[in-house]
């Protein structure tokens, strides 16, 4: 168990390092902006004095290096700064209270996690079952039909699937709401119903990938001697696959599930925009459009963090699921 701990600590250290470098990349990218933030906040008709004072407030007169470390230190303490739009609004109304980026992101982050959770709860069991069935009845009509269906749904853009679902489930047969207006204090069941259509869209995208991987991972093992042995013992095909092949195929399956969960958190952008779902992806796109740099920066960092963390999790889980890696000689 000692060596496993060491591997895990190594991977975590590597993940933290990657995140640090990613934060540098994001910082550099943002500072490539022509002009500076002060100009961006105040717009064209700003007086030089006003720009100067904003520059001082935001610390823009300091050198890049100290600005980067200030930003990093603030981020580590949960202080992500203030969004330009909010700062602009505050200076317009003259109010002193500012909504920080962290306060803006927190409820939306929770919504996105809820959406990802609902999707995962539907997609993971469905795709595992379908994958096992496709491996069991490989090369049959069922297998070919699922292959065509999943290939089509992987390669369609998310908004196409989303609008097809809206057309059939919301407009022609009004079963589910096509807009997900989530607000605070709504009951869980109501929230679930409103989340269902975006969740179904994401399920379609994600299931295909996971199912194909499950099928491929199981079929890869079917030529191994122990599978042949199990077959010669006279076990039923279902039992051969579920009891003998599946545990050995776990590593790639866990990997693809974790990757798809990472996709769920980062790839929700388009789906959230289609369904006007108040998640972090929509906030990101809105901020990109109005060039609200602090929000864009913070969202980018959160997405990258989630992505790195889930990839790390996949790595560690696949080590744990493989005895040969768990007990290296």
């Amino acid at each position: 168990m000692d060596s496993v701990l060491r591997i895990i600590i190594q991977r975590l250290g590597l993940g933290a390092l990657t995140l640090l470098v990613v934060s540098i990349v994001i910082f550099i990218a943002v500072n490539l902006l022509p002009g500076d933030f002060a100009q961006a906040i105040l717009g064209q008709g700003a007086t030089p004095e006003a720009i100067e004072s904003i520059r001082r407030d935001l610390g823009l007169d300091q050198p890049y290096l100290s600005r980067y470390f200030n930003w990093l230190a603030g981020t580590l303490q949960g202080d992500l700064g203030t969004s330009f739009a909010q700062a602009n609004f505050a200076s317009f109304t003259g109010s002193q209270e500012l909504t920080t980026v962290a306060a803006q992101i927190a409820p939306r982050f929770e919504n996105t996690m809820f959406l990802a959770g609902v999707t995962a709860a539907i997609a993971v069991p469905v795709s595992l079952t379908l994958g096992i069935l496709a491996a069991l009845y490989r090369n049959s009509v069922f297998d070919r039909a699922t292959n065509i269906f999943t290939l089509s749904s992987i390669s369609s853009p998310e908004f196409f699937l989303a609008y097809i679902l809206i057309l059939f489930l919301a407009v022609l047969n009004p079963l589910l709401p096509s807009l997900s207006n989530i607000f605070e204090g709504m009951s869980l069941s109501e929230r679930f119903i409103k989340t269902l259509l975006p969740a179904l869209t994401l399920t379609l995208v994600v299931t295909a990938h996971m199912m194909r991987m499950t099928r491929a991972a199981i079929i890869n093992l079917l030529a191994s001697p122990y599978i042949e042995m199990a077959r010669l013992k006279g076990l039923s095909p279902m039992r051969v696959i579920v009891v003998h092949a599946l545990p050995n195929a776990l590593a790639p399956i866990i990997n693809v599930i974790a990757l798809n969960l990472a996709y769920l958190i980062t790839g929700v952008v388009v789906v959230e925009v289609v369904f006007v779902y108040p998640g972090i992806g929509q906030l990101f796109v809105d901020s990109v459009k109005i060039r609200d740099i602090p929000v864009v920066q913070a969202c980018c960092l959160i997405f990258a963090g989630a992505y790195i963390l889930l990839n790390l999790l996949a790595d560690i889980l696949s080590i744990l699921s493989n005895p040969r890696l768990r007990h290296p000689k």
């Binding site: 990613v22 902006l33 952008v269 990101f284 969202c299 980018c300 992505y307």
Partner: peptide
């Protein structure tokens, strides 16, 4: 390590300013 669509959106923000 940065998701492709997110990175593209971030860079497009800057590109649109340029």
């Amino acid at each position: 390590a940065i998701p492709a669509l997110i990175f593209a959106l971030l860079l497009m923000t800057i590109a649109s300013a340029w």
